[in-house]
Design a protein around this nucleic acid. Structure first.
Lengths: 316, 316
DNA sequence: CGAGATAGTTGACAAAGTCAAATAATTGCC
DNA sequence: GGCAATTATTTGACTTTGTCAACTATCTCG
C-alpha cells in the first residue's frame, strides 16, 4: 500500500505549528482512548504497569530488574515490591545470574499460562476495537502507526526496501516526480505529462527480460524509483531516476542505478544511456560514480523554462 | 498531501491480526512516549490529570464538574478535591449555574495567566519533539494522526471535500483506479495504461473553461474523482468516475456527477456523453438518476477479458 | 585487599485514586 | 403543592500507587 508525500499549495498555508497542535490533540485523544483500555487492564486484576512489567519479563525471559527499570523507567523500589507480589502469585521465579548482584526473573509455568491468557485477552479486546474497520483500513492503520512511531521515536528508520514494480506504481511515481520537480525546479504541467507518458508506455510495451523498474519503499511510502528500458537491441536507457528528499544521503540512488547496470549486463546490452539535466547535481554524481560519461549536452525548453540537458553513456 | 490506499499482493499475505499487533505495539510505544511528557507535566507542578482538568475548564469556561467527569472519566470525589486545590491556588472560582445543584467553575484572571503559560510551555515542549522532523514530515504526521483518531474514535468521518484537480492528482487517480479495477474485476495492465493515457492527455490538452476534473479528498486521502472533457464544440464527455469503496453509499458519486452536469451546462454544451460498463452497477445507477440514458452497447476485449460496455447520453 | 560502584531491597512516607454515605437541589408524579 | 426519586457535588475513610533515601550484598579495578 505505497503512498507518496505530496506537499500541496493549501498545506503550505497552514499555520507553522499545525503539527504541534495536531500532536497535542492526538495526545489528549489517545490518553483517553488508551486510558479506556487501561486502568484495571483489560478486566484483569493487573494495572497497566504491572501488565507492562509482565510483558517485559515474558519477552526477555531471564531478565534482571535493572532491565525492566530501564525499559519502563519505573522506580526500582516499586518494581521490587511488584516483583515480590508476582512471586507470591507464583507467576515468576528469581534465578541467579552470572553477576550475583542480579536476581533475574523468569516466568514459571503458571506464569506462562497466566501471561498467555492475558495476552490473548488483550489481543481480543484490541481486535474488537478494530472490528468496525475494513481490511484496507486496518492495513492503513498499521502502516500509519508504524510511520508515526518511527518519526516520534526519532529512531533510525529502517533502510527502504527495493522491489520490482507492480500495478499501481506507475501513477504514484508520476505523481511524486511531477510534484517534486514542480516544487523544486518550477517545471510545469508538461513535466507531469511527459512522465505520465513514459510510465504509461513502459507498462504498455513492457518486455519482461529486457526491461525493468525498481521501486524503493518504506512503511508503505514510495521513496525512490528507476526505469531501465530497451532503446535498441544493444542499447538500454535508464530513465526517471528519483530519490525522495527524505531518503537521500543513504546511497539509495546508487543502489537503484547499480541494479539497472547489473540487469543491463545480465540482459546482454552493450551500453546504457541516459538523459538528465545539469541542475540535478546529486543524480549526476551518482552517474559519474558508476562510470557514466557525458556524450553531449543541449538546452531545451520542454519543461516550461530553459534547461541544460545532458546525454550520458556507459559502455557495459 | 493526498495519498491513495492501494492494497497490494504482499499485504494480503500479512497475518489477519497484523493490525491488532500493530495497535498493541503502538500502545506500548505511545504510553512510554507520552509518559515521558507526562508525570510531572512539562516541568509544571501539575500532574497529567490536573493539567487535563485545567485544560477542560479553560476550554469550556463556566463548566460544571459533571462535564469534566464525563469528558475525562475521573472520579467525582477526586475531582472535587482537585478543584478545591485549584480554588485555593486562586486559579478557579465557583459560580452559580441555572441549576443550583451545579457549581460551575471558571478561570480567574490568575488562572488564565497560569493556564496560558502552561499551555505555551506544553506547546513548546511538543514542538521541540517535532523539531527534528522536516516540514513535509510534520504535515504528514498531522494528517496521519487525524486519520487514526477518526478511525479509532469510531466517530463519524467528516464528508470528503470536493475540490478541483491540482498537479500530482493525475498519477494518484491513475494508480488508484488501476489497482481497484484489477482487484475488483481482474482488468489487467492495459487498464492502467488506458487510464494513464486519459489522465495524461487531460493535463496536456486542458482547456480551462471547457474541461475540468473534480477530486474528493479526506484526511489527505483520495476518495473519488471525475473528469469532464470536451468531445466536440457541443458535446462533453464524462470520464473516469470513481468513488473509493471506503466512501461509497454517501452520495459522493452523485455529487461528482452533479458537478459535471452543472459545469457542462455553464460551459454551454448541448449534451453530455459517457462510456461505462455493465458490471459497474453503482455507477450506472448514478447516471440513470441524473437523467442519462443508454444509447448503445457493445462487447469489447480491451481490458484483458471480454466486457459489455455501454454508451450513455444526457441532453442538457 | 579495600574503596567505590552497582543491583536490588526495605522502611517511611506522600500522592493518587476509590467508594459509599451525606448534603443540597431538582424533577416527576400524583 | 408535596413527596419520592433523581442528580450534582462533597466528605470521610479508606486502598493503591509511587517516591526517596538508607541499607545489604556483590562486583570492579587498582
Amino acid at each position: 500500500m505505497p503512498s507518496v508525500n505530496l506537499p500541496l499549495a493549501d498545506d503550505r498555508a497552514a499555520a507553522p505549528d499545525a503539527a504541534t497542535a495536531a500532536l497535542r490533540r492526538f495526545n489528549r485523544f489517545y490518553t483517553r482512548f488508551a486510558g479506556v483500555l487501561g486502568p484495571g487492564y483489560m478486566g484483569s486484576e493487573l494495572s497497566l504497569i504491572e501488565a507492562r512489567i509482565l510483558y517485559e519479563i515474558a519477552k526477555g525471559q531471564p531478565l534482571a530488574s535493572k532491565r525492566i527499570v530501564e525499559a519502563l523507567s519505573v522506580d526500582p523500589g516499586y518494581l521490587s515490591r511488584i516483583l515480590r507480589r508476582f512471586t507470591q502469585q507464583g507467576w515468576i521465579a528469581r534465578t541467579r545470574g552470572a553477576d550475583a548482584r542480579e536476581h533475574p526473573v523468569r516466568l514459571t509455568p503458571v506464569g506462562e499460562t497466566f501471561f498467555s491468557e492475558l495476552d490473548r485477552a488483550t489481543a481480543a479486546s484490541t481486535s474488537a476495537t478494530l472490528a468496525h474497520l475494513s481490511r484496507d483500513e486496518q492495513a492503513g492503520l498499521a502502516e500509519r502507526l508504524a510511520w508515526i512511531e518511527a518519526r516520534l521515536a526519532g529512531a533510525p528508520l529502517p533502510p527502504p526496501a527495493i522491489r520490482l514494480w507492480q500495478p499501481g506504481d506507475m501513477g504514484l511515481i508520476t505523481a511524486q516526480q511531477a510534484v517534486y520537480y514542480r516544487n523544486a525546479y518550477g517545471w510545469g504541467d508538461t513535466m507531469e505529462v511527459l512522465i505520465g507518458e513514459i510510465t504509461s508506455r513502459f507498462v504498455r510495451d513492457f518486455q519482461d527480460r529486457r526491461e525493468q523498474c525498481w521501486v524503493a519503499e518504506r512503511h508503505g511510502e514510495l521513496l525512490g524509483s528507476v526505469f531501465l528500458v530497451a532503446e535498441t537491441d544493444t542499447v538500454a536507457r535508464l530513465r526517471l531516476l528519483y530519490v525522495d528528499p527524505a531518503a537521500r544521503g543513504h546511497g539509495l540512488g546508487g543502489d537503484l542505478v547499480g541494479r539497472c547496470i547489473a540487469f543491463a549486463r545480465e540482459a546482454g546490452y552493450a551500453e546504457l544511456v541516459l538523459w538528465t539535466h545539469t541542475v540535478l547535481a546529486s543524480a549526476r554524481a551518482i552517474y559519474a560514480d558508476h562510470g557514466f560519461v557525458i556524450e553531449s549536452a543541449e538546452t531545451h525548453d520542454e519543461f516550461g523554462k530553459p534547461e541544460q540537458s545532458e546525454h550520458w553513456r556507459l559502455v557495459l
